[in-house]
Amino acid sequence: MKIMNLEEIERVLKRLCQKFLSKNENLDGLIVVGIQRRGAVLAERISKLIKDIKGQKVPVGTLDINLYRDDLSRISYQPVIRSTNIPFSIDDKHVLLVDDVLYTGRTVRAALDALLDLGRPKKIELMVLLDRNCRELPIQADYTGKKIILSSDKMVEVKLREVDDREEVVVLKRGEDEI
């Protein structure tokens, strides 16, 4: 079941940016870090939107959290390690961490550990396109695009045109095709 299309995704991202900018006048020291893979795509877009609105360029980095997962000894597959590319110091910076879906909170926990290994930021905030229920850790987003409540047999899939052949958010039943 499709719950967002391209226009809605773009509208939600714009609103997220405006919400962020209304709370943050001064963008000096801000960096946007996206969690691989689709969070990284969204981070690029957020940075571009901020530049369009405020005319200020915000550095973007990408973070791969697989090396920090807490389930590496349990999962049956082998995660592909993508690159972490944050070619600047994050010490004393304001980090806006971006991901597509906030679900159990375990990815964000891993991302926080990964970030703290890279330096000591002044502040880390979390921005997500979607927040679905079923949290397993006490983690919440500071900026949420859309909230949805799903039963645990459902999963959300975000497709973005930069890395997928289409752009949409769909809800799938676990282990089945689209419903």
């Binding site: 690159s83 550990d113 290994d117 890279l118």
Partner: peptide
Amino acid sequence: NTAASFREVLERPIKKVPTL
């Protein structure tokens, strides 16, 4: 390709990840 990702870890101030 996997090694290329680990190469970046070696350039960090903290050259350690909790993976294993």
